[in-house]
Each structure stands twice: as C-alpha cells, then as structure tokens.
Amino acid sequence: MFVLRITVSPSAVERIKSNLTKCMPEVKSSHRVEAIGRGLGFRTYAALLAASRSSEPPIAEASGAAFLEYLRGQTYETDSAHFHRAVAFAAISNVLENAPKLHFHGFGFGRPGLNLDGSRQTPKQQHAEFVVRRKECLGLRAAEAFLRSLALLGRVKETKTVRSGAGSYKLKHLAENYTCTYPEGGKLGPDYVSNGILIAAALHIGFKYKTDVDHLGYNTQNAAFNMSKAAIKVLDAEIRPWMGGRNSRGSVAA
C-alpha cells in the first residue's frame, strides 16, 4: 500500500480534473469535481479551489475511500484507482517540471544508441527519443509504476547523505517485484517499474539525489539517493529472497 500526498496547486487540481474527465466520462462533471475535493480532504470542491489559490497551497493526502464514498452517495459505482492514478499524473507532471532532464528511463541521454544501419544516433535523434520518453512518463503504466514505487519507498529510511549503494536501478527492481495493493484494496504490484519513474517517485517524496556519468562522460541515467543501505538490504531479502543478496540486472518476475 502507498501514501500519496500532493501540493494542491491550481495546476495540480486542473491536471487531476482533466485526467478524471477523460477516464470517467460517465460521471456528471459537478459530481466528479466534488469527489475530487472530498478525495483530497476538503468539504467541497470550492474549498479545494480556494486553498489551491492561496499564497502557499497546502499538501493533501489522496483518499480513494473518500472519493468513492462521495460518488456512491450520488449512485455511481467506480474504482478508486482512477483517482489515485489521476493524482499520480499530477505529481509526476510536477516532478518533470522541476527535473527537465528526467524521462521514462532516467536522467539525460546516455550513450548514443545504434541505428539500423549500424551508425550512432545523432544529437538530434537522441533529443527526439528523449521527447518520446518524457511523454511516456504521463502514460497509464507510468502512473501505476509511480504508485508501486511510492509503496516501496515508503519503507525506506532517509539518511543525511546520498549513498552510492542506494541507487535507482536496484530500487526499481525491488519496486517492480514488490507485492502491494491500492489503499482500498485491489492488486497494484508486482509489475513493471521503469528507472525514470522510480526516480520521479523518490523526488516527489523529497529524497536528495546525485547523478553520475560513465568513463566516457555520458549520463548513466541512474541516480543515487540519501537512503539507508541497510534498510534497502533488508527489503531486498524480503522481496527477492531467491537472489540471496546478489545484485541483479534482471527484469521483473512473472
């Protein structure tokens, strides 16, 4: 299970509203926005809007239960996952605005890939690929991966300094193998988590990070965080007991 908190700025509220309009068209607009207000801890949508327009918008914790309760009172039956994913989209969007080099697979371009003819990608080709990977961060699987990452990272202790042994690539494998649910029930994981979305979740929570380059000067696309290596080791033993403490670059278990 995860805890999802978000600063209820005007842009965040609008993003949540827009996303739910697309995925819940059967719900009357006035009921949908009122449900958003309840889901973010406000008595009404008007109260949410007023708070969002203050000089310091508050941080709200997303409650799928409150969201559902209001809609059921209006005779709608739906899934709280819609609400959680909409809030996740808003959170990811905010992270992307503050981390312009972050994309679905991590930070920066990395080494130029190979074209079909064997030539190396040009900077223009790399940038085009980067734009596509940024857009991937706002897809459905990215929102769900973000929530899976929050579920894992909620169990990781913060440290004062960034640790080299607390890297995003290992953490993303733990997150995608982590058995977790939505707060109101319903399976969330295990399932795929990309490196970039794990990083986005860590930045959203407030972890500090450092990036690195390889021996040729290219971005590794990974990040290290101010997280307890001991806590990560314990989680690894719990989540991937078959690994026996070994490092892995494998993909998520089926």
Rank of each mutant, 00 (worst) to 15 (best):
residue 17 K to M: 12
residue 18 S to M: 10
residue 20 L to Y: 09
residue 23 C to K: 00
residue 25 P to G: 08
residue 28 K to G: 08
residue 29 S to F: 13
residue 31 H to V: 07
residue 32 R to H: 08
residue 36 I to H: 03
residue 37 G to K: 00
residue 42 F to Q: 02
residue 43 R to M: 04
residue 44 T to K: 05
residue 46 A to F: 10
residue 47 A to G: 11
residue 48 L to Y: 05
residue 50 A to G: 04
residue 51 A to V: 10
residue 51 A to S: 12
residue 52 S to H: 09
residue 54 S to A: 14
residue 56 E to A: 14
residue 58 P to N: 07
residue 58 P to V: 12
residue 61 E to I: 12
residue 64 G to A: 10
residue 67 F to T: 01
residue 68 L to H: 04
residue 70 Y to F: 15
residue 74 Q to C: 14
residue 76 Y to K: 08
residue 78 T to H: 10
residue 79 D to Y: 13
residue 79 D to I: 11
residue 80 S to G: 10
residue 80 S to N: 09
residue 81 A to M: 12
residue 82 H to I: 06
residue 82 H to W: 14
residue 84 H to M: 08
residue 84 H to E: 06
residue 87 V to H: 03
residue 87 V to G: 08
residue 88 A to F: 10
residue 92 I to M: 06
residue 92 I to A: 04
residue 93 S to A: 15
residue 96 L to V: 14
residue 103 H to C: 14
residue 104 F to M: 11
residue 108 G to H: 10
residue 108 G to V: 12
residue 110 G to H: 07
residue 111 R to F: 04
residue 112 P to C: 14
residue 113 G to P: 03
residue 113 G to F: 12
residue 116 L to K: 07
residue 122 T to H: 12
residue 123 P to H: 11
residue 125 Q to E: 15
residue 126 Q to R: 15
residue 137 C to S: 13
residue 139 G to I: 02
residue 143 A to R: 04
residue 144 E to T: 14
residue 146 F to M: 02
residue 147 L to R: 02
residue 147 L to V: 04
residue 147 L to G: 00
residue 148 R to E: 03
